[in-house]
Nucleic acid binder design. Sequence first.
DNA 1: CGCATAGTTTGGTCATACCAAGGCTTCCAA
DNA 2: TTGGAAGCCTTGGTATGACCAAACTATGCG
Lengths: 245, 245
Amino acid sequence: MSKKETSGIVQFPSEGGRASDAIVDVLQHQILSGELPHNMPLASERDLMERFAASRTVIREAVATLASRGLLDAKPRFRPIVRKPGYDTALSSVGSIVELLLEQTGGVAPLFQSRVFVERGLVRDAAVSATKGDIADLKSALRRNKDALGDSDAFYATDVAFHAVLYEIPRNPIFPTLHRAYATWLAPHWSRMLRSPERNRVNYSSHEAIYMAILERDPDVAEAELVNHLHTAWEHVRQTFDIDE
Amino acid sequence: MSKKETSGIVQFPSEGGRASDAIVDVLQHQILSGELPHNMPLASERDLMERFAASRTVIREAVATLASRGLLDAKPRFRPIVRKPGYDTALSSVGSIVELLLEQTGGVAPLFQSRVFVERGLVRDAAVSATKGDIADLKSALRRNKDALGDSDAFYATDVAFHAVLYEIPRNPIFPTLHRAYATWLAPHWSRMLRSPERNRVNYSSHEAIYMAILERDPDVAEAELVNHLHTAWEHVRQTFDIDE
DNA sequence: CGCATAGTTTGGTCATACCAAGGCTTCCAA
DNA sequence: TTGGAAGCCTTGGTATGACCAAACTATGCG
């Protein structure tokens, strides 16, 4: 027989669990260990069924499971692509649920409120402990924001980028991911909000005030400006399509 | 023909996507709308294939998808149970990925650091705006914590409960969920840490100090005590099984 | 009326087949 | 030589049908 037992051929079909679980474990380990390199297409389902001595049903279930965990990027008609997980992986895997929650449980208000909470802490910390490099980053982000005052789309982008800098300062990979989460989940509501050069100017001057407060190492002012900034923006969102709270 | 088209019989097998997606949409809508009540077992697969005029393959895929989104609780050999999603649903759906991340990318340190960040903000806010009710809750939690000083297991539970009260104060459902996330993901490391009456006493006195600072409406002291509290605990975790930073 | 038992339902898995879209090779024409 | 069209092979998506063991239900006995 030409069957090679290169990797885990599993033999506990009983044991209560699903047969695919064992295969998931093996593939997951291979992905995490780098044995299956990032961005490499997975073997074909028919290959896998030979390697694991399992039916295609089980193989497909295993692949689906790994895809739901973000370890595989499985687009409809294409080969699944190996993805080594990062914090963003976790983010994308909750995406579908969160989107449901945003139109159910209390809507976007709690999420936005949490963002205000986080950014308040961020600007306080920035005011206390931002490095020269951080401040330089903020400054250039602010500059780009100013340059985009006339173009609402560009302004929005540089607005997001300015806030993103705040999330970089803690040097904790969770925060940039969190920022992407907020940007992703709040954007649909944000972008529908009317924009105008006047609004841009107001927002820009808030950014400037926050930057100045950080520069002057004043956490209280920084926080206050941030709160004012986001609350104002929130009011606009609320009024644009009145949210009940 | 006796085929009743009670609900969405889908007829775009083409259109590029997967056939199960359409079924997922229908079922998801029925779950969210309450048409399929919470905790109700889903119809059998064979019923569903009749209702949607689809093969069992597709039905099973749809069920798997909904399960991965947390809208169905599908245990191996049992009927899937309908679950109306909440923030905790999102939490459990990221669980498997986060657990992987914790033994990879930087380990638990970033997660713990984020917890410190969050709780700093929480105690500051508590100091500023806790209601009488909040303070009463903190007080009784503190009391239970004190009563459990001699029993390390009970102490751990009341410790977690004390921190949980802080997450209740913003009246934002995201925070209690976040607390459960921290409790879940950090517990495995936490619980392996050695415990002792002395450690309990140190921790309790920190809780007391935090409570007092909140009572005195002093955010700075509250934050400082909280930071001291968590950093001390973190040092112990680090030393217990030395983490490289 | 309680409980052991037999029959039925149902989820998990396998084997097979077909289709259409993606990929690849070949080969012609500019 | 080279760009691209035609045709073949591979592969993922779906449909059937079957079988098993566990879960569920009904039955009947003590």
